[in-house]
Amino acid sequence: MSTYYAGLFADIGILFLGAMSVYIILATGQLSLGNAGFMGIGAYLASFLTVELQWPLTAALIAAALAAALIGVVVGFPALRLKGIYLAIATLGFGEMVRSFLLNFDRMGGSGGFHGMKHVSLATIWLWAGGILVLIVLLERSRLWLHMRAVHDDEIAANLVGLDTTATKVGAFGFGAAVAAISGGLFAHHYVYIEPGNFGFERSIDFVLAVILGGSTVGPGALIGAGLLVLLPEWLRFLADWRLAAFGVLLVLVLLTRRQGILDKPLLDRLTFGGLRA
């Protein structure tokens, strides 16, 4: 594979994991616009562990994921008292807070960024991405996921059929944060250089976009979304300066015709012969 395509596929894997982190939280009906913040936490923490403490990458990624999950739960408790647009704005604020913290955190390079990571192979990125995808596809058939969907559909009714809606939402937030951190750790070890600007608001929006475009009701939708978000601008290169505008038009067209995103349950069932039903 050429380096060009290897780079693109690495980007897809990393974006897919970021999108997945949004998808998990969205499954409980909460929109997070701050997941780049968790990605940044994962990127910096994993890099610190591998570069300064010489940890192996796998251990560093797991530690970063656990730390981000913990922060996600701590942030989630107050934030999840908010709903809808208010929660979205609060999470956006969290993401910016992380970015400006990193900007001023001289121990990890501040605005100058941080480097010294060993380059991670494409296979490793996809081992993580594939592993998380399988995990989510299985989880989507579990009782826990049904509980998350119940909270998504009607929180009051969910509470009154005996579900702990707060625990469900906070748990999903923590889990999403962990996946975003893995995405960040892999990002850091793919680009071998990170700076706070890598984890800004635009990246959070990319995550959300990948989910909405690819399909927000099934996990593999995020994969389709991430693939298109990375590849489409490349395929449209022949349009030169107009390519980003054309990309925008395509995006609007897809959403006008398929509000649920490209991949949904009926389509997925047809593609998998319905064999994965719960």
Binding site: R143, L146, R149, A150, D153, D154, A157, V161, L163, A278
Partner: peptide, 12 residues
Amino acid sequence: FASMTVWEHLLV
């Protein structure tokens, strides 16, 4: 629950 089938309601 808006997104659930009858079967899923009986599990949730």
